[in-house]
């Protein structure tokens, strides 16, 4: 696996995501429909080894739990799986198109939310009706924004080379 993301980069992304989520939670709640932790955990997993994807997912999920005020470990668990799965998906799927990536990220967002809601139900928590509406909005928003983030980050990480000089 081609490790294109250095550990220092991952740590920076983690810090930036935590700050962003705190800012969104306090000042721009509508931005929380974008599951930034999921998008970045997927991106790191997509461009790294499965182990690194899993660790990144764990690291991104825990602050999200802490900021959301739910049980620590719920998003940690789901993002661990997403980061790990993202790495394997990158081997099986070659998705370069923006639309394809948006669809995939949207689907994975639905799976991620399904895991969190399922775990909460297993733990005996009441699941309010509003949760389903939130997921219905979050899936396309995360899918679209995730695809765009993937696209632009790829442009930064993999600038187009001038092959005429080869």
């Amino acid at each position: 696996m081609n490790e294109t993301l250095r550990n220092s980069e991952v740590v920076l992304l983690l810090a930036a995501t935590a700050v962003a989520e705190i800012v969104f939670a306090n000042y721009l709640p509508v931005a929380l429909y974008l599951d930034l932790s999921l998008v970045l955990a997927l991106y790191i997993g997509w461009n790294s080894s499965p182990a690194k994807g899993a660790v990144s997912g764990f690291a991104f999920g825990l602050p999200q739990d802490a900021i959301s005020g739910i049980f620590l470990g719920l998003n940690g668990l789901s993002k661990t799986l997403m980061g790990f799965g993202g790495s394997y998906l990158s081997k099986w799927l070659l998705l370069e198109g923006l639309l394809a990536r948006c669809v995939l990220i949207g689907l994975l967002s639905a799976v991620d939310e399904g895991i969190v809601v399922g775990m909460r139900a297993l733990l005996g928590q009441t699941i309010q009706q509003e949760v389903w509406l939130r997921i219905l909005i979050q899936v396309p928003v995360t899918g679209f924004a995730g695809g765009v983030i993937f696209h632009f980050y790829d442009r930064i990480k993999f600038p187009e080379k001038d092959f005429r000089q080869v």
Partner: peptide, 20 residues
């Protein structure tokens, strides 16, 4: 951990469950 990715996944999942 790099060579045995499922080992790291299992470890992290267990850590999450422990935390919960």
């Amino acid at each position: 951990l790099q060579r045995k990715p499922f080992f790291s996944l299992a470890f992290l999942l267990f850590a999450n469950l422990l935390l919960l």
